[in-house]
């Protein structure tokens, strides 16, 4: 099945309309969930009043931060085993978008944390540390690719690093959880207390779906740009060779 989609011509034909369609659908869904979050949903005093509306950006970006690293690892694996060039393009495109969502998760978390927990940053919260480490994994991946002098080398080095990082992610998560359970202060308010009422859950899930589709649209667009760039390189090389 992978081979069907690995054909760049078919990919270009498909993504030509899929990328803008995803962009429009994603923006519409995100806009609806933001409108719900900012004007419709009642505020929750237990989570710090109006500031809890940050959840509708914060939680989807946290999910996407985790999911995008898994996507990066899977794409790297597929490229490393089967050498499908589109998988490498996908990995290359996912990295900056995933890093962006990770940064957004950290930023909205800090903004939400300041009025509710009284601090921008807690060094002893396991989830914050996990997301921060994920951010560094993305940065390292992008820095390594940028440092390599050929495209092939960048793809191979990036794939090795992404796979090594992916097998380490469960270990990192486990160790950070152990460490935080020792140092954890009891005052931190946990979101996973009572089950979330549907009035919050529906905009949250729709928003998450919107961000997922938006993420797909950005990835497809970057992949298309990469395909065009490679085609341009081939044309240039041909011109130089032919004189």
């Amino acid at each position: 099945m992978i081979s069907i989609f690995a054909n760049p011509h078919r990919f270009m034909k498909l993504s030509r309309w899929l990328a803008p369609a995803c962009l429009v659908a994603g923006i519409l869904l995100i806009a609806w969930s933001l409108w719900q979050a900012l004007w419709v949903v009642p505020q929750d005093d237990y989570q710090g009043g109006d500031i809890m509306r940050a959840m509708f950006i914060h939680v989807p970006s946290a999910w996407l931060a985790m999911g995008s690293y898994m996507g990066l690892a899977v794409a790297s694996f597929v490229w490393f085993i089967w050498r499908h060039e589109l998988a490498d393009m996908a990995a290359k495109s996912i990295a900056p978008i995933g890093a962006g969502y990770t940064a957004m998760c950290l930023a909205t978390g800090a903004i939400w944390g300041k009025p509710t927990w009284g601090t921008w940053w807690l060094w002893d919260d396991a989830r914050m540390m996990s997301v921060l480490l994920m951010f560094f994994l993305f940065l390292g991946y992008m820095a390594l690719r940028a440092a390599m002098d050929t495209r092939q080398k960048a793809a191979r080095a990036g794939a090795i690093l992404a796979m090594v990082g992916a097998v380490n992610v469960p270990l990192i998560k486990f160790s950070v959880d152990i460490w935080a359970s020792i140092h954890q202060s009891a005052s931190v308010i946990r979101m996973d207390g009572p089950a979330m009422p549907a009035i919050y859950l529906t905009p949250l899930l729709i928003g998450a779906l919107g961000h997922l589709i938006f993420f797909a649209a950005l990835t497809l667009t970057l992949m298309r740009a990469e395909v065009w760039q490679r085609r341009g390189d081939v044309i240039m090389a041909r011109k130089l060779a032919g004189g």
């Binding site: 480490l133 820095a143 950070v176």
Partner: peptide
């Protein structure tokens, strides 16, 4: 510097368990 950026996240579990 690149090596430090690549390796430091991988050091975390060892550093945590080692320090404990």
């Amino acid at each position: 510097l690149l090596i430090a950026l690549l390796a430091l996240p991988l050091f975390v579990p060892t550093a945590i368990f080692g320090a404990l």
